[in-house]
């Protein structure tokens, strides 16, 4: 078994990724001083997590992503995938085992959809029949009809369809790790929302580890298991789960970056089941919510309800409590307080 087989060679489930004090310098300023694109980056991504790198443009998030598959090589520090330093692995073998999706999708215009998806399987020498079956499986997996899409060319697809094929292509050999650089950036908000939901669903089912770059904090909060907020100069200001980022921004910079509406954003990542609900009253009036409803949607409904109260039921329809404006307000108070 070669070193690259060993790396990412496990059959199923996601990989662990670890950045150890990784820096990247470019020597190009007028006085010859090296410019840091990424400075002393350390973070760990557990198997099956989506780690979102978010920040303004030029903050080093894309550079960090590209160092994982060695499109860019670090100046110092180590990046380990399942404990193996990527710099010790042949870059070509490494990349063939890591899914890679970029914003512009990069579908090959001269190849059909089937040929595009087959790119990596062909590179690693899968038999033809296996490739054909896998291609159809993947087109269906991203919600398109294999029979009518297989032989089309990228120019015959809409923006959203191209993004889906881009994701399908990156998943062709079931990589335990996906690198995604603003993969949903080039489509309209409605399509983006649908693609995000489908991707989340897919990612959870397959247990992939994902490194995801975006400049959109809302996307980061929605998709991230953990979110790394980058600031200018290539350092991480905070690395936490989205709820914590919203509730306890580590610095003023993070607070500004997540936005003054972060109380509302926080509601979007909480479920009614997470709230301290009032006991069920005999009245039992108002709208009925599933316990899985996100608090933001519940709040929107309560604002329109006559008595500003609603009943929360569990998955079998049994009432488990009552949600009111007060219940919701008390859940976000810490956030409101920290705004001062």
């Amino acid at each position: 078994m070669t070193r690259s087989d060993e790396l990412l060679g496990r059959a199923k489930g996601g990989a662990t990724v670890e950045f150890r004090q990784v820096s990247k310098h470019y020597a190009r300023s007028a006085n010859g001083q090296p410019i840091a694109a990424v400075r002393d980056l350390s973070l760990v991504v557990q198997p099956g997590e989506i780690c979102v790198l978010v920040g303004p443009s030029g903050c080093g998030k894309t550079t960090s992503l590209k160092m994982v598959n060695r499109l860019i090589e670090p100046t110092s520090g180590q990046i380990l995938i399942d404990g193996v330093d990527v710099m010790t692995v042949d870059p070509v073998a490494l990349r063939r085992r890591i899914g890679y999706v970029i914003q512009q999708v990069g579908l090959f215009p001269h190849r059909t959809i089937a040929e595009n998806i087959a790119t990596v399987p062909e590179l690693v020498g899968w038999p033809k029949a296996k490739i054909r079956a896998r291609v159809d499986e993947l087109i269906a997996l991203v919600g398109l009809d294999p029979a009518s899409y297989r032989d089309r060319y990228p120019s015959q697809l809409s923006g959203g369809e191209r993004q889906r094929i881009g994701v399908a292509r990156a998943m062709a050999i079931e990589p335990p790790l996906m690198l995604m650089d603003e993969p949903f950036g080039a489509v309209d908000p409605i399509v983006r929302e649908r693609l995000q939901n489908e991707f989340l669903d897919l990612q959870r089912r397959l247990g992939l580890t994902v490194l995801f770059v975006t400049h959109d904090i809302d996307e980061a909060i929605k998709l991230g298991t953990r979110v790394a907020v980058f600031e200018q100069g290539g350092t991480i200001a905070q690395y936490s789960p989205p709820a914590e980022l919203l509730m306890r921004p580590a610095t003023d910079y993070v607070a500004r970056f997540v936005g003054s509406d972060r109380a509302l954003k926080r509601l979007a990542v909480m479920r009614l089941a997470d709230l301290r609900l009032s006991p069920v009253s005999s009245a039992g009036e108002g709208p009925v919510f599933s316990a899985e409803t996100n608090v933001r949607d519940a709040l929107a409904a309560l604002l329109l309800a006559p008595r500003a109260a609603g009943t929360v039921v569990d998955s079998s329809g049994v009432p488990i409590g009552v949600v009111t404006m007060e219940t919701i307000a008390s859940a976000v108070q810490p956030v409101a307080a920290s705004l001062e």
Binding site: V92, Q104, V105, G106, L107, F108, L123, R169, A170
Partner: peptide
Amino acid sequence: DPDLVEAARGMGMRELE
């Protein structure tokens, strides 16, 4: 398009590929 070239390289094509 440089994005195509980067996508190709990022998927693990050798330079000749």
